[in-house]
Amino acid sequence: MISLPLVYTILALVAYTTGFWYSFMHLVAKRKPNKWFMVVILAIGLLLHGTVLRHDMITANGVNYDVFNLLSFTSGLMLVLGMLYSSYRPVSALNLLGIPVAASGLIFGFAFSQPNQFASIHAIGLDIHIILSLSAYAVLLMATIQAIMMWLQNRELKKKQKRLWVNLLPPFQVMESLLFDMLMTGFVMLTAALLFGFFMVDNFIQQHLAHKTVFSIISWVVYGALLIGHFRFGWRGQKAIRFTLAGFFLLAIGFIGSKFILEIILHK
């Protein structure tokens, strides 16, 4: 018997695929995609994505924080944020990245999520801390992808023959402005997540959070230094790209590394 989550997953993937190809064909033909069609089709996909995620993540025993559920949540949130950013900046082409990421996260979450991965302490404040952490991670991951694309874009622009994907991207200045929009949003979310964490966690060692916390704080310092350098000293370009990549590398070591080791290797 086919389950409803499977049906919702298939329908969400159909919506994502439709939105991707509609946007891709219009951008290749140098025609502007219909904004409202993209909003509606992606909203349908995200609604179905959220329904599947709710079935796997929200249970009678609490929130199931399985690593694949978190991957699904993060990927869907990235697409939501991409749609929001593209609503006021001419960066709709970046949804060509956000849609496959959301679709992949949905597939992994549906196929591989495990039950009974609950937090040891059930509290609203702790749930807020986790959601804020995931949201910050999603935005800063988007900023990292943005920085990589800017580096590649800058390298390709120096060549006489540009590749197709470079022509699909917005101008470098627009890409840079969006990068700092993402960094500011992610930094605020990361700050709030760290503050909630300090108030909610009783024992960082016993709860296996020391490693994650140390790397998160170092990452926070790196992002903060970049934002101060940008707004006060005009840091941009390659320096901004390097700081962004370094900050996310540290954040990923703390967030993904500790999660993978505890769940996959140590089974905790």
Rank of each mutant, 00 (worst) to 15 (best):
V101I: 15
G76C: 06
A138N: 03
G125H: 06
A240M: 09
Y223A: 00
N95Q: 14
L140F: 02
L152G: 15
T17A: 15
L183I: 13
G234W: 06
N154G: 05
G82N: 13
T17Y: 10
V28K: 15
F248A: 06
M83T: 11
L152E: 04
L134Y: 05
L47I: 13
N116F: 12
K259T: 14
R89D: 09
P33N: 08
I2C: 02
F248Y: 10
V222K: 02
I130E: 06
F73Q: 00
P171M: 04
L195Y: 01
V188G: 00
P5H: 00
T74M: 13
L195I: 14
I128P: 08
G19L: 12
K30E: 15
M78N: 07
F249V: 14
T51I: 12
L266A: 07
L71Y: 06
P171W: 02
S113P: 03
K158L: 09
F187P: 02
S120F: 09
G109K: 01
G19F: 10
F172M: 15
A246G: 09
H26W: 09
P90Q: 04
P171F: 02
D202A: 02
S219A: 14
K268T: 12
G109H: 01
M150E: 10
V221N: 02
F37N: 12
I124C: 08
I217A: 01
S113N: 04
E263Q: 13
H208R: 09
S133D: 04
G76M: 01
A193V: 01
I44E: 11
F187N: 00
Q173A: 14
L71W: 03
I145V: 14
L169Q: 12
F198D: 01
F248E: 08
F37P: 15
W151S: 14
S258V: 15
Y137D: 04
T9P: 04
L266T: 03
A136Q: 02
F110K: 04
I10G: 10
F255N: 11
I107C: 10
V7Y: 08
N34R: 14
P100S: 08
F255P: 09
L157C: 01
M175K: 10
G50E: 07
L126G: 12
H129V: 03
F255R: 07
A12N: 07
F204G: 00
Y22I: 14
M83D: 08
F249K: 08
G234N: 06
M25Y: 10
L168W: 03
I130F: 11
H129I: 03
K239L: 15
K162W: 07
S72M: 14
A147D: 06
